[in-house]
Computed example of a mutant assay.
Amino acid sequence: MFGIGGLLMNDLSLTEAMEELSSAEDFLSFFGIGFDQSIVHINRLHIMQRFHDYLAQVEAQLPESDEALRAVYQRLLSRAYDDFVHSDAQTEKVFKVFKQSQPGFVSVEQLLGS
Rank of each mutant, 00 (worst) to 15 (best):
S23I: 03
A60T: 12
E59H: 07
Q61R: 12
E67P: 03
L55G: 03
F30W: 00
F27H: 13
S13N: 12
I39H: 09
A60Q: 10
R70Q: 11
L14H: 01
A17W: 02
F105R: 08
H46N: 15
V40C: 03
P103H: 06
H41A: 15
D66W: 05
F27V: 10
V94Q: 03
V97G: 00
V40M: 08
S29D: 10
S65F: 03
P63K: 06
Q61D: 15
S13I: 08
S114C: 11
N43D: 13
A80V: 05
Q90C: 06
S29E: 14
E19Q: 13
Q74C: 11
V58G: 07
E92A: 09
L7V: 12
L28H: 04
E20M: 13
V72E: 01
L112T: 05
S65R: 10
H46P: 05
F84C: 05
R75K: 13
Q37I: 14
S87T: 07
M9R: 00
P63G: 15
Q74A: 13
A24H: 01
H41L: 12
A60Y: 09
M48K: 10
S107Q: 13
E25T: 08
L112I: 06
S87G: 08
S65A: 14
F105G: 09
Q49P: 01
V106N: 12
A24Q: 01
F98H: 11
I33E: 03
M9D: 07
L7M: 07
V85Q: 08
